[in-house]
Design a protein around this nucleic acid. Structure first.
Length: 225
DNA sequence: ACATGATCATCT
DNA sequence: AGATGATCATGT
């Protein structure tokens, strides 16, 4: 169950095998304790899936399946297939971005090949009863890539020109910039309104749920609602 | 502090 | 209800 997959086909086969299981069932098979809720274990579902699918060591700055170049993302959804949350992509670099190009960016690299793993995870459903959906491989199509690139370029320009204080989650069509930190007191270096170095809250790039919903619809051809 | 994994909790 | 800003745990 937890052997490292040697090919994309094997990885997808492993996904099919766990599709339909509850988190409780899978955790039992893997001898993993199920927390009461996710309040103090927010990463538990993702880590369980990494274990089940044979992803490589967790906290390195590498894709989950380095040999396959695939990033694994769990995606909590409701009963109608709508994502319940935005999807974290990576930390946003706030300094030293002069002349950086989209194709070389961390966001672009991370989203090149994503194994989406939907989880039926409505809040009212106890954690152990949440159900694993059908995982599928995705690469941005031309239209999606163009939207992501445009959002990224706009956000990075604002960051580079000292506009970070004015960026909020509403910015961007698909990609947004939001805090990503242990708490609101965490600080990192950034560029101030007059080009001076400042300390600010670390930010991360996230995919808006509308965008991931479109990915799901494209894959499963779900009815809109 | 920053990377991994994200969800929580409040505001609108 | 949905989105935004805040937060939790763990490893490097």
């Amino acid at each position: 169950m937890s052997a490292k997959p040697q090919s994309t086909a094997e990885l997808l086969t492993n996904c099919q095998r766990i599709a339909g299981l509850t988190l409780g069932q899978l955790a039992a098979e893997l001898s993993q304790p199920v927390p009461k809720d996710l309040r103090k274990d927010k990463g538990w579902v993702g880590q369980l899936m990494e274990l089940a699918l044979g992803a490589s060591a967790g906290s390195q700055a590498l894709p989950d399946f380095p040999e396959l170049g695939i990033e694994l993302k769990t995606l909590p959804i409701d009963h109608s297939g709508k994502p319940l949350e935005s999807t974290y992509v990576c930390v946003a670099p706030l300094t030293g971005n002069i002349g950086q190009h989209w194709a070389d960016s961390w966001v672009c690299q991370k989203l090149q090949r994503v194994l989406w793993l939907p989880i039926l995870a409505e809040r009212q459903l106890p954690l152990h009863q949440r159900i694993i959906g059908q995982g599928f491989l995705w690469q941005p199509n031309a239209e999606q890539a163009a939207i992501l690139q445009q959002d990224w370029e706009e956000l990075m320009e604002l960051i580079s020109l000292g506009g970070i204080a004015n960026i909020r989650g509403a910015h961007g069509k698909a990609l947004q910039l939001r805090p990503k930190a242990a708490d609101s007191k965490a600080l990192t270096k950034a560029i101030g309104a007059h080009g001076e170095p400042i300390q600010t809250l670390p930010r991360g790039f996230y995919l808006k749920s509308h965008f991931t919903q479109a990915i799901l619809q494209q894959e499963f051809q779900l009815a809109d609602r």
